[in-house]
Simulated assay, not measured.
Amino acid sequence: MDAIDRKILRALARDGRLTNAELAEQVGLSPSPCWTRVRRLEAAGIIKGYAALLDQAALGLPDTVFIEVMMERHDEDSLRRFEATVLAIPEVLECHLVTGEYDYVIKAAVGGTAGYERLLRDRLYRLPGVRHTRTSFALRCLKRELSPVPE
């Protein structure tokens, strides 16, 4: 990957709807070599896909919470069941298996404290093997990058 590939990745990370002509102009290439590079980056799995960024507030889920989850057991079956269940919860934006005191960190979109309580009581506390949770509400998002592009 060279400097032009990184320019392409940065431009697409900012706006995945750029036309090939617009992208080529931004990175200083003609359209044909730009198209070839984008296809190569896709084929290599560096570009995994394209998605629309949705406005959580407009969808009635204006608040972001970070929920740390401690499991009762750490056997493969318990973790697999927990993970499969979390994948099916629509409010969950991300879920990471982490090191430290807690086992998972979940990022979720909720509709205020009432929406958070519903998520906690109706979904998370019913998950298999959950021992304890700890939650923080995000006050403001200072930076949001979907994927960093190294220099």
Rank of each mutant, 00 (worst) to 15 (best):
L79K: 09
T99M: 14
E145M: 05
H132S: 10
C141S: 08
I47N: 06
L142Q: 07
M1T: 07
A21M: 14
E25R: 15
E42A: 01
A11G: 07
T133S: 11
F82Q: 02
D103Q: 07
Q56N: 09
Y116C: 00
L119A: 02
A52Y: 14
I67M: 14
P31W: 12
Y116D: 01
Y102G: 03
R17C: 15
V38W: 07
H96S: 05
K48H: 07
R121K: 11
E117C: 04
L59E: 04
R144T: 07
C34Y: 07
E68Q: 13
T135Y: 03
R134L: 10
V38K: 02
V38I: 09
M71W: 09
G111W: 00
G111A: 10
E72N: 04
Y50M: 05
C95M: 10
I4S: 04
L59S: 00
M70T: 05
E76N: 01
S78W: 07
G60P: 08
I106F: 08
A21P: 08
C141Y: 00
E83H: 05
I47V: 10
D55K: 08
R80L: 04
A52W: 13
T113V: 08
L53Q: 13
E42M: 06
E91C: 00
E101C: 01
A88Q: 14
Y125V: 04
Q56T: 02
Y102E: 06
L87W: 10
D63F: 00
S78H: 09
R140K: 09
R140G: 00
V69I: 14
R126L: 12
W35K: 12
D5K: 03
R17N: 15
I106Y: 04
S147K: 13
R14M: 14
E145W: 06
N20Q: 14
M70Q: 12
L139N: 03
M71V: 01
T133R: 07
I46S: 01
R134H: 10
V110N: 01
L146F: 14
K7M: 13
N20M: 15
E42C: 02
L23T: 12
D63K: 00
R10N: 09
W35F: 09
F66T: 10
A84L: 11
Q56K: 07
R81G: 00
G60M: 06
P31M: 12
T19L: 15
S78L: 06
P150G: 01
H96M: 08
A13L: 14
V130G: 08
W35Q: 15
E91T: 00
D122W: 04
A138N: 04
G115L: 02
G49I: 03
A108I: 03
G28L: 14
D122N: 12
D5Q: 05
R14P: 05
C34F: 06
L23G: 12
F82S: 01
R140P: 00
R131Q: 13
M71P: 01
E68S: 13
T64E: 11
Y50Q: 05
L54R: 11
E91R: 02
S30M: 12
E83Q: 11
R134V: 05
V105H: 08
L41F: 01
R14E: 15
V38A: 02
T64Y: 06
A21T: 15
R126T: 08
R131H: 11
V110F: 02
T133Y: 11
Y102T: 06
V92R: 01
E25P: 02
R123P: 04
S78V: 06
L120Q: 10
A11W: 11
